[in-house]
Design a protein around this nucleic acid. Sequence first.
DNA 1: GGAGGTTTTGACAACCATTTTCATTTTGGC
DNA 2: GCCAAAATGAAAATGGTTGTCAAAACCTCC
Lengths: 129, 129
Amino acid sequence: MTTRRDAVHDTLRKSEGFRSAQDVYAEMRLHGAKIGLTTVYRALQALADGGQVDVLRTDDGESVYRACATDTHHHHLVCRRCGRTVEVAGPAVERWAEMVGSEHGFTEITHTVEVFGTCAGCSTAVRSS
Amino acid sequence: MTTRRDAVHDTLRKSEGFRSAQDVYAEMRLHGAKIGLTTVYRALQALADGGQVDVLRTDDGESVYRACATDTHHHHLVCRRCGRTVEVAGPAVERWAEMVGSEHGFTEITHTVEVFGTCAGCSTAVRSS
DNA sequence: GGAGGTTTTGACAACCATTTTCATTTTGGC
DNA sequence: GCCAAAATGAAAATGGTTGTCAAAACCTCC
């Protein structure tokens, strides 16, 4: 019952950055896993619901998933070229969001904060090409 | 050539919060405008490219657009219930993002920061129901 | 060691926002 | 007015994601 989900989770853990459901599916099939695309979607959703993986949306609307090292609240610094991801904390940002929200009478404040850039490796690769 | 785009822009300006392309299209047809869905999509894209409207993605992957009051960089505080939106500045957050990025050797840093909450009006509405 | 019910799985079809295509219309320049 | 270039929009295509449903795997209690 949970073996499939674990397999998906494991595959995700082996990836550097955020991966789409289709990526994970392709990856697993490559390694000979017998699993269907539907099941991968369901597993990723379940993992995301359970807070065991983080989700975000790419600019073109694809959902991408990542098994993060920490299970505490954090944000991501993502290389827009290779997808390499660094987990970062931003206590100041959390406080700012809370403050901005309550200043305007909003309650149950949540926020999304993602930072994108070109990582060191990728920017040298571009320069030399 | 630009009349259609202006019509779309106007419709957007009359809305309180973020609206999807389909919303805008329906709204315009309601008011008797003769315009096609394709053109609405194209106009919104052009406006977004030109920085005249802001775009963001809803949780279910829909692109939503908003004609913002200021044309300087800012973020949004969005009511997750009614969509009412407040434009907020966050100079501290900008600096934080830059710093986090360069700390890890990333260049060309960009960031997305959105704050969600339940606005005062909506939270009383919920309480009284 | 089943029998019978419940859960999980996955091939396939359906969905739906968005994009592409392409024929028609409108526009601007001369 | 004429013609090339740009804009328009109806309809079809796209593609990630979700729903359907029958088959398979898994319990649980005899």
